[in-house]
Nucleic acid binder design. Structure first.
Lengths: 194, 194
DNA sequence: ATCATTATGTACCAAACGGTACATAATAGG
DNA sequence: CCTATTATGTACCGTTTGGTACATAATGAT
C-alpha cells in the first residue's frame, strides 16, 4: 500500500511558497527559489504538483483565500460589533510593519498580473475579492438592522466601495514610506461606515 | 555627420511598446513581441535602447506619465469647473470600453510588479501617482476657495483618498464584466467631492 | 527476505529568454 | 566617387527557465 513516507505536508509547503509568491510575484519567483523556500527537491515537487509552478500558485491562491476568509468569518462570528471588525481590518493596514505592507494584496496583485493572460487564476483572485465584498455587504446589512449604522447609501455599493478602497490601499501600502503613515487616510475612509 | 537615416521615431515606438506593456505587463511582454509591436529589428532596437527591455520600459513609464499628466493639466487649464474635470476622469473609467478597462492602471500595475525588486521603476510609478495626487490636491484647494466645494475634510487627505480609489478602480475595472457596470459605484464614490 | 509501492535527489534537457557581433545598407560631406 | 558615419537585419550565444528521466531509498505487506 504505502511506500516511502513523505517528508513534508502539502499544506505546509504551500504556505511557504505563498510567502515567496506574495513578496515577489509569480514570474519573479523562480521554481528553484520556490523549492528552496519550500524545503523540498524537484523530485518530490513535481510528483506532488504535476502541474508544476502554475498548479502550485493556484493552490497558494485558494489556500490563502480560504485561510483569510475563515479568519475574518471567525472573528465576525464572536464579535459584538461586526462593523468594528471590518474597520479593524482596514486599520491594520495602517498599523502593519513595513515588510507586511510591502507584500500588498496577493489577490489584487494577481489580477493585475494575470487578467490579460490567465482567466482561471484571475477568476480565483476575483472570487476571493467578491467573497470579501459579500462579507462586507452582509455585515453592513445586519448593522443597519440593528441600528448600529446610519448611512443612507446602498449597502451593496458601500461594500463595493470598501473593496475598491481595500485594493487601492493594497497599492498605497507598497510605497508608503513608514508604518503608520496611512492611518489618518484610513480613518477618514472609514467614515463611510457611520 | 549623419549616416543611414532612422526608419522610426523614438516617441512613436515607445508609444507602441507602451500599449503592449500596458496590456500584458513587463515579464509577459517578450522582447521579440515588443520588437514586432514596435515594428523595428533587434539591431535598431539595441542601438537606440542600450539598456534593452528595461530601459524601454522606463521610457514607456515616463512617456505615459508625462502625456497623461499634460493631458489632464491642459483640460484643467481651460475648465470653468475644475472639480468636474476630476470627476469626469473617474467617470470615464466607468464608461470606458472593455479593452481599455482590461488595461487597468499602468502605474498601479508597475508598483505591484516591481516594488519588491526594482526601486527605480517603482519610484517612477509612485511619482506619477504623487503628481496626480498633487493635482487633485490643488484642484480641491482652489475649489474650496471659490466656494465650489463644501467638504470639511482635509484637502490633502481627500486627495490621497481619491488616489486610493483610483488605484482600486484600476483593479476593479480589470475584472468588471461589462462596460458601464462600475458607474453607479463611481458616482457614489464621487460624493466625497460635494 | 523480497517485493510492490511510493518518495526522494540528481543528472539532464529542450526551449525561450535577453542580448551581442558583425556584415551590410543608406545617407552627407568632401 | 570615395569615405566616414550611422542604421539595419541576421546569425549567433550564454543563461536561465520550467520540466523530465531515472536510479535509489524507505516504507508496508506477504
Amino acid at each position: 500500500m504505502s511506500g516511502r513516507p513523505k517528508i513534508f505536508e502539502e499544506e505546509e509547503v504551500v504556505g511557504k511558497a505563498a510567502a515567496l509568491f506574495w513578496l515577489k510575484g509569480y514570474e519573479a519567483s523562480s521554481t528553484e527559489e520556490l523549492l528552496v523556500a519550500m524545503g523540498i527537491g524537484k523530485g518530490s515537487f513535481y510528483l506532488a504538483f504535476k502541474g508544476g509552478k502554475r498548479e502550485l500558485f493556484e493552490k497558494v491562491l485558494t489556500a490563502v483565500s480560504k485561510q483569510e476568509l475563515k479568519q475574518l468569518r471567525d472573528r465576525l462570528a464572536i464579535a459584538e460589533n461586526q462593523v468594528e471588525i471590518i474597520k479593524d481590518l482596514f486599520r491594520n493596514i495602517g498599523l502593519a510593519s513595513r515588510e507586511t505592507n510591502e507584500k500588498g494584496c496577493l489577490f489584487g496583485h494577481t489580477i493585475a498580473d494575470f487578467s490579460a493572460r490567465d482567466l482561471a487564476l484571475t477568476n480565483i483572485a476575483a472570487q476571493h475579492l467578491q467573497q470579501l465584498e459579500e462579507i462586507f455587504h452582509q455585515v453592513i446589512l445586519r448593522a443597519l438592522e440593528k441600528g448600529q449604522l446610519r448611512t443612507s447609501e446602498d449597502p451593496a455599493l458601500l461594500a463595493s466601495h470598501l473593496i475598491t478602497v481595500w485594493n487601492g490601499l493594497g497599492i498605497s501600502r507598497r510605497i508608503s514610506s513608514q508604518s503608520g503613515s496611512l492611518s489618518p487616510l484610513i480613518e477618514m475612509q472609514l467614515k463611510v461606515l457611520l
